[in-house]
């Protein structure tokens, strides 16, 4: 197994593990909101922290999903042209359009990192009544984007392999087909 293959499997595996973990945050969001309703309605004592914590968790949940969804081909596209092309044609097309993908994600990575490091430098808090640290949520932007970029590189390597018939990747190992019933 070459370096490239190992890299590709490693990244996909990493996104898989992280994604399956982050997916469980939905239970926490549910629990905190129900708690808030109970505290406020039953005991007339709303908390200062439940809604804000839920929102912070949601931010992390949303932004960390990019790479995992990419690995599962879950970012929805228009397949009008794709469906008329051979796998090789599709791969070549995807290599070309990946430029736009990388422009977006790298810009986001750069400025997300900038934003997060500024926030970490001052251990930024939200200054709400609860006033929790929010730098971890901001840090999730470059982290989540980074995972997406990595998975995008994997996708690009796959497409290159398919387009030029290179041996480090065989499409059979790929996750089912596109539009997999999620």
């Amino acid at each position: 197994m070459g370096v490239l293959t190992a890299f590709m499997r490693g990244v996909t595996r990493l996104n898989e593990v992280i994604g399956r973990g982050i997916a469980l945050i939905v239970f926490a969001m549910f629990a905190f909101l129900i708690m808030e309703v109970a505290f406020r309605y039953l005991f007339n004592s709303p908390t200062v922290w439940t809604n804000e914590l839920t929102q912070m968790l949601f931010g992390i949940y949303a932004v960390m999903s990019g790479g995992y969804i990419m690995a599962h081909r879950g970012h929805v596209n228009v397949d009008l042209l794709h469906s008329h092309l051979s796998p090789r044609g599709q791969a070549i097309l995807d290599i070309l359009t990946s430029v736009v993908f990388f422009i977006f994600t790298l810009a986001l990575l750069y400025f997300g990192y900038d934003m997060a490091s500024e926030s970490i430098a001052s251990w930024e808090t939200s200054y709400s009544a609860w006033n929790p640290p929010i730098w971890p949520v901001k840090a999730a932007i470059p982290l989540g984007t980074g995972l997406l970029v990595l998975q995008g590189i994997v996708k690009l390597l796959e497409d290159i392999a398919v387009a030029f018939n290179l041996s480090y990747y065989t499409p059979e190992t790929q996750e089912d087909e596109k539009g997999e019933a999620l």
């Binding site: 004592s45 200062v48 709400s128």
Partner: peptide, 13 residues
């Protein structure tokens, strides 16, 4: 929000 809570009302965002 902190103030109203401290004062004894139930303040929420």
């Amino acid at each position: 929000q902190t103030f109203l809570t401290e004062a004894g009302a139930a303040a929420s965002y």
